[in-house]
Design a protein around this nucleic acid. Sequence first.
DNA 1: CTATTATGTTATTCTAGATAACTAAATTGC
DNA 2: GCAATTTAGTTATCTAGAATAACATAATAG
Lengths: 152, 152
Amino acid sequence: MSDNPEPLTSADSLRAEATTGIIGYRLRRAQLNVFQKFLTVFDDLKLRPAEYSVLVLVADNPGRKQTEIAEVLGIKRANFVTLVHGLEERGLVERHPSPQDKRANALHLTTSGQSFLAHARGVHNAMEDELVARLGGTQARDRLLALLDRLT
Amino acid sequence: MSDNPEPLTSADSLRAEATTGIIGYRLRRAQLNVFQKFLTVFDDLKLRPAEYSVLVLVADNPGRKQTEIAEVLGIKRANFVTLVHGLEERGLVERHPSPQDKRANALHLTTSGQSFLAHARGVHNAMEDELVARLGGTQARDRLLALLDRLT
DNA sequence: CTATTATGTTATTCTAGATAACTAAATTGC
DNA sequence: GCAATTTAGTTATCTAGAATAACATAATAG
């Protein structure tokens, strides 16, 4: 009773097909893996994924209000305050109170924020290239993004 | 200076290509979306993704130790304790102390755990079918899983 | 001009994960 | 066989992310 007639399931390999066949499960594993890679690659820049996406978005849309940037990224504005505050303290981002709307903070990159982002973009492009290589080329990447789109 | 010569970026649409082109960003969005769907679909069963995967794994590998199940799922055994405890309190899972190793808890589904999982599997299959439909068929699903594999 | 809505903020809560320390039991190395 | 080490489960604690509520100030609508 305690011995296996056939070692289908040996001591360390267990049947996980029913788990690994789940789309959400595989998505999560892949996402965690990619984010882990991001954290490793950006360790010396001390930049988290959310912070990087904020810098990119502010660079491409200077002068936008905090709420606008936060909304696009799906970040609650209450939590966005701390995030932007951190970037501001590091001298990467400035908030000028908008003259048109004295409630709003218009976001801009500082000069050092721009050069920091230029560097970060380089690092990120290298990482992205490696992911594309793993996927098997830009076509495969595009297919992946198209499939992910359908889930969103 | 405050007016846009051309409304490339009108009041509500901002340039997000540089963000949406990022593999990790898109992966995360898709994953959050799918998990959100899971939570909605499993709301009345009060089952979270991690709990579902534990039930499936225990059903397919009865008698395994906590640590083994936890490791396959990438859950730290310290955190796994609470998870299993919850499932045990709901009468879905039993831990029998293993006679061979008095330290270890061998995990099994209870009878009601088995019928609960049968129901949950049905609910999940329906959800998975809908995702496959969104992706454009089982071939597209297989391509997605293959691509995700390369990132993991 | 008053009532409502929007922006940024603070404080609080909840959850998922990670780490450290402990016990009891098993295993390893003499 | 016995001391030292490792392993399984547990508890407690800490951090990070995200969600909610409440508030001050300013803009907008009726």
